[in-house]
Design a protein around this nucleic acid. Structure first.
Length: 189
DNA sequence: GTTCCGATGTACT
DNA sequence: GTACATCGGAACG
């Protein structure tokens, strides 16, 4: 059985991943922004049922779902379940902690706050590509360590979507300067 | 600070 | 052909 954490709803996992540390081949940092998507959500890639692209969303939890967006960027998701396949959490921003030099080789000589402050940016910085879609997150090149103390969260609507735009399934680390964009609302913890 | 736009793979009408 | 879970640069105020 997969790690119990990922066998929960996308919203629960999206909250739990804030403050967790993600590395790919030793390059990464602390997750500071996530969004939840599930199969009942018209904004989700899984909404229309399984396809070749979204197949990992319908597989076991605790794996990666990586897809290409706008023809040039990659986006990284953590597959969830909670008895309902087709759910996943988009990782939108990371606070860089390890492998900053490798990140700059891939992204350019940018300030820390610009290296991983967006879903496409963090995939470029960590070297996440489509070949990793479906890969388990508890094995190399991935490393995912959960936080001990739950951090203070902020919550808001998701970014860049038209369908399901009112659903407040975007979560962030309160006060972080590494977000893709600011939040307006504070979430209960 | 803001808005506009081009890049261009993949899914879908 | 159109839309899209994006980004970076140009133009403008």
């Amino acid at each position: 059985m997969a790690h119990a954490l990922f066998d929960q709803s996308a919203e629960t996992v999206a909250r739990a991943l804030i403050g967790a540390e993600l590395e790919v081949d030793g390059v990464g940092g602390v997750i500071v922004e996530t969004e939840a998507y599930d199969v009942l959500d018209p904004a989700s890639h899984s909404f229309g049922g399984p396809t070749a692209r979204n197949a990992p969303m319908f597989g076991p939890p605790g794996r990666a779902y990586v897809y290409r967006i706008y023809g040039l960027h990659w986006c990284f998701n953590v597959v969830c379940d909670a008895g309902q396949t087709g759910s996943a959490v988009l990782v939108r921003a990371i606070e860089p902690r390890t492998g900053l030099e490798r990140m700059r080789e891939r992204r350019g000589p940018l300030p820390d706050a610009a290296l991983c402050s967006g879903p496409g940016k963090l995939c470029q910085a960590l070297g996440i590509e489509g070949s990793l879609s479906g890969a388990p997150l508890d094995a190399a090149p991935f490393a995912l360590r959960l936080h001990v103390q739950p951090p203070e969260l902020v919550q808001g609507v998701r970014i860049g979507i038209t369908k399901g735009a009112a659903t407040p399934w975007r979560f962030g680390l309160a006060g972080s300067r590494f977000l893709s964009r600011p939040f307006a609302i504070r979430a209960p913890t």
